[in-house]
Design a protein around this nucleic acid. Sequence first.
DNA 1: TGCCAGGCCCTCTTTAGGGCCTT
Length: 207
Amino acid sequence: MGDYGVVVLDFETTGLSPLSGDRVIEVGAVLVENNVVTDRFQSLMNPGMRVSRFIEEYTGISNEMLRDAPPVGDVMQRLTAFLDRHHLVAHNASFDQRFLDAELSRLQLRRKAEFACSLLVARRLYPEAPSHSLGALVNYRKLKTDGVFHRALADAEMTAGLWTAMIRELKSDYRLKRVPFAVMQRLMKLPKRNVPDYLRKLADEQD
DNA sequence: TGCCAGGCCCTCTTTAGGGCCTT
């Protein structure tokens, strides 16, 4: 015990911008407790609009699949229950955060949990990686996948795999006893050159 | 029909521009 629980989540959407009218079409989320996945949530959602051919091909989610899916609002209510009060993690979190907040706002709900971003942490821990896209990082760290990409639950599972791998490596490489959520949030914002010093000092403080 | 974001981060920087990420 002593580690935090976080929910790693991923949205598939009709496009890049909720302010331009884009909606969510699928959510995948995994609960990570003590650095192990202990629960999962996944659902397609009917956004009330047709998705473009590009999105159909990018995600493999067709308009036909969405036709009989539950409305976004129903799924977001169930997702809120799953999120409970856990902190949140996503790859390029600002994207998922914008969509989550936009959909909650339509329900007159507000997010209470804080986000951390696996992309921003990975840029600091693996500056030499050829790319910091989720797929590239999964290859770079040789993480297990089921070969599915750009579906919400598969991407959430891969992001969780990356997140837990980074925490394990922080513990082993810097002899950290604990890697609290606040430390990951701090890493997101730290200038790259300050990261090694910060982690060494943190290890000293934990001794 | 046609339109289409935002934040991070580097650099030939700060009176800016452009690539990377997310769908």
